[in-house]
Amino acid sequence: MALVGLEELRAAQQRIAAVAVRTPLIPCPWAADGARTLWLKPENLQPTGAFKIRGAYNRLAALSDAERARGVVAQSSGNHAQAVAYAARLLGLKAVIVMPDTSPAVKVENTRSFGAEVILVAPGERDTFVGELADEHGYVWVPPYDDPHIIAGQGTVGLEIAEDAPDQLDTVLVPVSGGGLISGAAAAIKLTCPGVRVIGVEPELAADAQASLRSGRLTAWPVADTYRTIADGLRTPSVGELPFEHLQAYVDDIVTVSEQEIRDTVALLARRGRLVAEPSGAVAAAGYFHRADELAGRVFAAVVSGGNVEPRLLAELLQA
């Protein structure tokens, strides 16, 4: 499979320009410690509350008229679900979304509010039932990460970081789940700023991507294991095949953070950064606050990938 290149990334950037917010890089002087500084890329400010709108709109906008008439189906724990529903509404398409019955209620409600039909299934059925629906009804399947259009759309995050990069930026931290975001972002950064390192960050309880990258072989974790993490958007049991090729080509390393470190970072971003991040969205920043000494960088950028957090959970984390 061919890797996504600059031509595809630039085309995606143009295609989504009127839909996705071009989020700024925000300096965080409160996070500087004399040895290093941090900039945040707040993708929680997107219209669906997460970066996923970039890839979803890029994929749906590229469909042929015949494909659009068939409608689309997707599977997601929440952020891809909302993004596909939102993009489908903008483009006038029917959308059916398969979600685990463990998905946060706020993500299910938001997906329905954008006009999609939501079908809740057991977590282990999410990635199989969607194929059955596509076969039965003829829907176009819009995967959450294993697709070149999805990767190119998510990669516009990396293009923007490269364009807005502060002086001496040397390390970019990106959360890892199925690999669409880090694949596209890493490709964009390495193809435009080759000296900048790209480091993935994932929960210790869902560290399949780290195992895959370090072993050189795609490794899956059982759903029962990945579903232990509070970071519900990062529970995918393995990265996709095409994302894995991008990881091998462009990602320097993947580090992990603990559940407590994720929880602490959600609270810290809210209190000091005035940013509402869901646990999945706080993972990359947690890599800075808890793993920076291991990474030896001086000027970091971290992607805050989403902010769709249950209000009760946010209140709990802020009170801890």
Rank of each mutant, 00 (worst) to 15 (best):
V108M: 14
E125R: 14
V251Y: 05
P148D: 11
A35T: 12
S212K: 03
L93Q: 04
A188N: 00
L213A: 03
G240R: 07
T156I: 03
A20C: 15
A206G: 06
V283K: 01
H149Y: 11
V4K: 00
L318C: 01
E109R: 13
N58K: 01
T226Q: 11
R15V: 01
S103M: 11
P148R: 14
A50T: 01
R54Y: 10
V201Q: 12
H137F: 15
H290E: 11
V98W: 11
R228N: 02
A66L: 08
P143L: 06
V174S: 08
G131R: 11
A61M: 06
P175W: 04
G306E: 00
Q75P: 01
S280D: 07
G49R: 14
V257I: 06
T23R: 13
K107G: 14
V196S: 12
C28V: 15
A32I: 02
R15I: 09
I26D: 06
P47F: 05
N308H: 15
E204G: 05
F51M: 01
F51W: 10
S177C: 07
E259F: 06
T37Y: 09
V21G: 04
R291L: 09
D252R: 08
G287C: 02
F129I: 04
T219D: 04
G307M: 14
A320K: 07
P203T: 03
N110R: 15
S76A: 04
V96A: 12
A83I: 00
L213V: 08
L9R: 06
I97E: 07
V142K: 11
R235N: 07
L242E: 04
G180Q: 10
G158E: 02
V257D: 11
I16K: 03
T265R: 05
K52I: 02
T236S: 12
G71K: 09
T229H: 02
S77W: 07
I97A: 06
D101G: 10
R274T: 01
A122Q: 12
R112C: 02
T192R: 00
E278W: 01
G216R: 03
